[in-house]
Design a protein around this nucleic acid. Structure first.
Lengths: 221, 221
DNA sequence: TAATCCCTTACGGATATCTGTAAGGGATTA
DNA sequence: TAATCCCTTACAGATATCCGTAAGGGATTA
């Protein structure tokens, strides 16, 4: 079993719950908890440079703002940071997010080793995930697999780019210009129009207000 | 100190963190945890009818759907239910919600005794809250008091009526017609225009997309 | 009573949206 | 090569939005 684990989780109650479970149920020798991504990263780096690296990082995705200024503000950025120090570090994400659209990139882009969705069985799943990852397997909470079975319309990165800009009040003309500046193609106002109209059909929305409202309520934007 | 406490919290890791803290730091004799509102309510009711009532309920507000059908789906409904059994039960809410607009009604309408906002100091605050409530005082996480100093813009019922219709894809012309049919005044398209423009200023939104996105993300619609 | 303020409403102009049509280009297929 | 399909783009017209101006009416105040 792992001997040295680092936990990044900003809610104190959750944090303690995880630490207790790992101590009592897995007899991990060296567990360290941090409430800030930056602190977690520093601790990770120091341990690595001292030749006593952590073997596993368990991290939340969302971290509240605090009184301290933050460089790393999310689990995703923490993962990138620790991987730049130690590409072989294994990572389990423990978060309340349950949409496959958000979780898939963690595996494909960031190559995490496990994903546990917080919930009524979350702690048990986390224990299982740790055991699986220790055996060099990946783990995903079962309810995530089930959900992804539902043929939900998948929003790709391009869709999200547009939708997020619309939700922030940019017009399609402005979005078109932004895409051109970033050399992202396609980028014509007309194509953006078409893409969004297609999403109206896909989500049964009457207009942009409706579409954005639906998607935010579904937690997809 | 309280001898008998009931905890309703659906995230297993958080739940365990709270239970451990209460056992170790407050030496509560009888702590019971539940992952579902309905189960918490049943346990509460049985204990009350047996003449061994709980003295304190600690509950989250948001509870995930589960495999079991639920009657009570939120902390608010759980509080109402237990109060109908035992009006004197003391209640502390432990939630991640931090908007005064949502928290104030808990005190004014539901007369809870304490509110703890989950976060990096949440467990310490919860301990303090329990001690305060035991002394018949109320407790609110300090960051909430600070926030409530910010004069939050209040959306009245008329605003909400319009915003909800906009979020459902109705045009201002359609909303105007709906209001006329319902004999709600004012109802001209022009006035609706003005109301919404005023909300742009109040919330720093560039246009309707932006406004709706902001308000939904804030949980106000 | 007269002045003032605020809310409602109408109207108009500049933009933005939504939708349909059609042209051009790349990829696949016959 | 030719036919086909799909994606991108341009364009145009009907609506809808955003925003400013101004008129009318009710309530408050001098």
């Amino acid at each position: 079993m792992f001997k040295k684990i680092l936990i990044a989780e900003d809610f104190q109650d959750t944090n303690k719950g995880i630490v207790n479970a790992l101590e009592n149920r897995l007899q991990i020798e060296d567990i360290q908890e941090e409430l800030y991504c930056d602190k977690a990263y520093n601790r990770f780096k120091v341990a690595f440079l001292n030749g006593e690296p952590y073997e596993l990082l368990i991290t939340d995705l969302s971290f509240k703002e605090g009184p301290v200024e933050r460089k790393l503000t999310s689990g995703q950025s923490l993962i990138n940071a620790v991987r730049s120090v130690d590409p072989s570090i294994r990572v389990i994400v423990n978060s309340m997010i349950d949409s496959p659209a958000d979780i898939n990139p963690l595996f494909t882009d960031q190559q995490i080793n496990g994903y546990v969705c917080k919930g009524r069985n979350g702690l048990n799943e986390l224990i299982t995930a740790i055991q699986e990852v220790h055996q060099n397997r990946t783990y995903v909470s079962p309810q995530i697999n089930l959900n992804s079975g539902n043929s939900v319309f998948e929003l790709d990165k391009y869709d999200l780019l547009i939708l997020q800009d619309l939700a922030e009040g940019f017009t399609k003309k402005e979005i078109s210009e932004k895409l051109k500046l970033q050399n992202i193609s396609p980028n014509s106002e007309s194509t953006i129009d078409k893409k969004v109209s297609r999403l109206f059909d896909a989500f049964g929305a009457k207009n942009t207000h409706h579409l954005i409202a639906k998607l935010i309520k579904q937690g997809r934007i």
